[in-house]
């Protein structure tokens, strides 16, 4: 464990806490893409298959349980909670995430480290995580109204993966044989997808203006 990875995990945890707080306290999910939340639930469901078989550490198990619980409860809130679901923008949140899931599945069947069910599912979860933010970014472009909690959520989500890249560089430099191209490339793609959001987010923060994404 290194500081980059720990702060990455904490940033990731913060992002889901911010989102849950927003939905739970103001009972609204305006501006949040259900598609992205469903993709994240899928990411954790397919990545943490070994949660009860391969014990890594108490920290690892607790964090996995938290990510599984938060991602599925956010999806539940947005789909079934009688008040929250009313603020879900289903007309605007129309990204067909099946067109993201299928290519990721095919790619995971072709490009993986070992052709076993667990390994293919794990690789699949990496590819899905890389593109999971797309419906959310599309929704932000469309609705224009980025309330600051949603902005913070997306920012923290991007920052977590950026910190993970520093973690992989650190581990590559300090551990022999730490070479994981699939993880690195999908993590890099994921972070790059946030690049323009980061640009506009930091600019709006610096100029202290409301965050506006270009058309």
């Amino acid at each position: 464990m290194n500081i980059f990875r720990l702060s990455g995990d904490m940033t990731h945890l913060m992002s889901v806490i911010v989102l849950l707080l927003k939905i739970h306290t103001i009972k609204s999910c305006a501006g949040i893409s259900l598609k992205t939340q469903e993709l994240y639930a899928l990411v954790f469901a397919t990545r943490y298959l070994d949660i009860f078989t391969d014990f890594v550490s108490v920290y690892n198990t607790i964090m996995k349980l938290i990510f599984l619980a938060t991602s599925f409860s956010i999806v539940w809130y947005m789909r079934h909670h009688k008040i929250v679901r009313r603020s879900y923008d289903k007309e605007q949140d129309t990204f067909r995430h099946l067109f993201l899931i299928l290519p990721c599945l095919i790619l995971a069947l072709v490009v993986n480290e070992k052709f076993t069910f667990k390994e293919v599912m794990w690789t699949f979860s990496l590819y899905v995580e890389a593109v999971a933010i797309l419906p959310q970014l599309v929704l932000l472009q469309r609705t224009k109204n980025i309330d600051n909690l949603t902005g913070q959520y997306v920012f923290l989500l991007g920052a977590y993966r950026a910190l993970y890249i520093l973690n992989w560089i650190y581990r590559y430099l300090t551990e022999k044989h730490f070479v994981h191209w699939i993880t690195w490339i999908s993590g890099l793609v994921q972070t790059l997808l946030y690049a323009d959001f980061f640009y506009y987010y930091i600019n709006s923060w610096k100029n202290n203006v409301r965050l506006q994404l270009p058309a």
């Binding site: 070994d50 391969d54 690892n60």
Partner: peptide
């Protein structure tokens, strides 16, 4: 079994 190093990540 030892988990593959990158698999100990979240």
């Amino acid at each position: 079994q030892t988990t593959d190093s990158v698999k100990d990540e979240l």
